[in-house]
């Protein structure tokens, strides 16, 4: 069963609110909380978009992104990276590894919803 958005985020409170706002915007979502679980879940759930936190336990968001881009089945997956404010180097690294979009923590909920909507190719909310 394909879903709209797979969230990879280890902080429970952030995951809770992300799940809430994306569901409320009308998408189906699933979540994983560590880097190792992302690839399996992506293959199994076939999401249209992955929201990927950089600081994940076990396997960093960068490693996950690199693995996705070199995986025949997953390489076309859109990836929205969550980076921390002030970490310019993180953003450059993610760009080089082929991220499709960025949102910087701490973000406004609308920024995340708009970025997801843009990457899914849907019209922005008025």
């Amino acid at each position: 069963m394909a879903i709209d958005v797979l969230i990879a985020e280890d902080e429970p409170s952030i995951l809770e609110s992300l799940a809430f706002i994306l569901k409320r915007a009308g998408w189906t979502i699933e979540a994983v909380t560590d880097g190792d679980a992302v690839l399996d879940a992506a293959r199994r759930l076939r999401p249209r978009l992955l929201v990927l936190d950089v600081m994940l336990p076990r396997r960093s968001g960068f490693e996950v992104l690199k693995a996705i881009r070199s995986d025949r089945m997953l390489s076309g997956l859109s990836v929205l990276i969550l980076t921390a404010k002030g970490q310019q180097q993180d953003r450059r690294t993610a760009e080089e590894l082929g991220a499709d979009g960025f949102v910087t923590k701490p973000y406004a909920n609308a920024e995340v919803v708009d970025a997801v909507r843009r990457l899914l190719g849907e019209a922005l909310a008025q």
Partner: peptide, 18 residues
């Protein structure tokens, strides 16, 4: 600590907006 602060603020801000 910086990571914890950013995560905490992200969660607080997002929750408060909801």
């Amino acid at each position: 600590m910086l990571h914890q602060v950013l995560s905490g603020i992200t969660a607080v801000r997002s929750g408060a907006e909801i």
